[in-house]
Design a protein around this nucleic acid. Structure first.
Length: 431
RNA sequence: UCCGCGAUAGCUCAAUGGUGGAGCAUCCGGCUGUUAACCGGAGGGUUGCAGGUUCGAGUCCUGCUCGCGGAGCCA
């Protein structure tokens, strides 16, 4: 039996179809009634005219409420007056379930109210569009790496110690083995993967227990982390810019309707093509000073600093060679200046902040041991990681891209909480 | 943890210290092309909680709870 979806209605012009879905909205003008039905792929207007349908079908319309589920049959007809361009001349309505007092009405609602009913909010047009863009971003991420011969290596969620030793981790009891922590990055495991497979990517959820309360933070978020053996910092930056170009191009090509629903100005997105502007940390500091910001060389950039730097460019900007002191222990130092790490961040335009952070990794055993000591990290937990420098160590690099910040930027959203189906924030664990 | 803002009908918001209202949603009625349809009617309130000032508090003051935004930290 043929399954009909609203998204594909144009294929069935003039034919009888059966749509299974939910009531999105309805309007009545006495003897002619309009039912807007959604099925997850789109919305179609169904017309019910008295005298053209049996009496009981005409009367069923009055029983239907917003989000009631139903199966509707009728003939597809091209109709410019209908939203979507096609409408259905209804012949039969089968009510499956009547929804009582659906809380989201066709009017404005506050963010707090909607967040509490996130499980229902996902049915709304705007949230629907965002989730489809998110899906396209994730699909294109996999496509990018898969088509370049990368192997997906899943990193564990439970870890014995902090990967970077800086941020606050979620802690849990792990049987008789003591404390375990939820991962804040799959990178160290990715490095092991790169030594085994050459080029790999880790893609999974990560967790940060910091009490951040900003539009850019979640406690649980998704990160994709490629790692490539033999790549230096320069190779890493090239990979990152090709990667971003691919993601943005895929969304522009395959999700243009959704971007339109979100009223996203796509002219800036169309500019995301390599090469991206590259500036050093020191040059970024100069930009801040020129803009009247009192910034001390050696500090890390804050949210406002990132906005000022990125506003100088009309596409994402790569900032490289940060002071080693503000960066993680595993980053290789710049041979030309020991104070600098071979790190690079990519700042998204329009104030969306850091979407990519990466580096060339320290590949010398003795140096890495020294770094672990300097950072007061437990040596035992890193013995396996040090093995990667004991047995055929090679230069290698990688980066991490935050999926939610990327979705927020591409969709042009105010807050990352709308970029993930069920956001986890400091004060929100439900639904 | 710190700073700022907020909490009134199911929802979004009004209400000079002086009888708490409107739109949407719900229910009833009308309309043969509606576009967040429209028109008429009805029901719906311990104004977040606890105190205080006042003849009188949704409104002013204090404390608390919850939420939002920002800082720090980070992707």
């Amino acid at each position: 039996m043929t399954k009909y979806y609203i998204e594909e209605l144009s294929k069935y012009d003039g034919q009888e179809v059966e749509i299974k879905g939910w009531v999105y909205n309805k309007r009545s003008s006495g003897k002619i009634k309009f039912l807007l039905v959604r099925d997850g792929t789109g919305i179609v207007q169904c017309v019910i005219v008295k005298n053209l349908v049996p009496e009981d079908v005409f009367e069923k319309f009055d029983l239907l409420t917003q989000e009631s589920s139903l199966i509707i049959r009728g003939k597809v007809r091209k109709e410019d007056r209908a939203p979507g361009g096609y409408e259905i001349d209804t012949t039969d309505i089968q009510i499956v379930h009547i929804a009582k007092d659906y809380p989201i009405t066709p009017k404005e609602h506050g963010i707090e109210f909607l967040a509490d009913i996130r499980h229902l909010w996902l049915r709304s047009t705007r949230q629907h569009a965002i989730m489809r863009v998110r899906h396209e971003i994730i699909r294109s991420i996999r496509e990018f790496f898969d088509s370049r011969g990368f192997t997906l290596i899943d990193a564990p969620i439970f870890t014995p110690a902090a990967c970077e030793g800086t941020s606050t981790l979620f802690e849990t009891e792990y049987f008789d083995l003591g404390k375990a922590y939820l991962t804040q990055s799959g990178q160290l495991y990715g490095e092991a993967g790169a030594m085994a497979f050459g080029k790999i990517y880790v893609f999974g959820p990560t967790f940060r227990a910091e009490k951040s309360k900003t539009r850019r933070h979640l406690t649980e978020f998704w990160m994709v982390e490629p790692e490539v053996a033999w790549n230096d910092l320069n190779d890493n930056m090239e990979l990152a810019e090709e990667f971003l170009e691919h993601i943005v191009a895929s969304v522009l090509k395959n999700r243009d309707k959704e971007l339109k629903i979100l009223e996203r100005d796509i002219t800036l997105l169309q500019k995301v093509k390599k090469p991206l502007p590259r500036i050093s940390y020191s040059e970024a500091v100069d930009i801040l000073k020129k803009n009247g910001i009192d910034f001390q060389w050696g500090n890390d950039f804050g949210g406002t600093d990132e906005t000022v730097i990125s506003s100088q460019f009309d596409k994402p900007v790569i900032v490289h060679r940060y002071p080693a002191e503000v960066k993680a222990f595993y980053m290789k130092r710049d041979p030309e200046n020991e104070k600098l790490a071979l790190a690079m961040d990519i700042l998204a335009p329009e104030g969306y902040g850091e979407i990519i952070g990466g580096s060339q990794r320290e590949d010398d055993y003795d140096t890495l041991v020294q770094r672990i000591k300097e950072h007061n990290l437990p040596m035992e937990a890193f013995e396996w990681y040090l093995d990667l420098r004991r047995y055929g160590s090679v230069p290698h690099s990688g980066f991490g891209l935050g999926v939610e910040r990327t979705v927020a930027w591409i969709c042009g959203l105010e807050h990352v909480r709308e970029t993930i189906p069920f956001p986890r924030m400091i004060y929100r664990l439900t639904p």
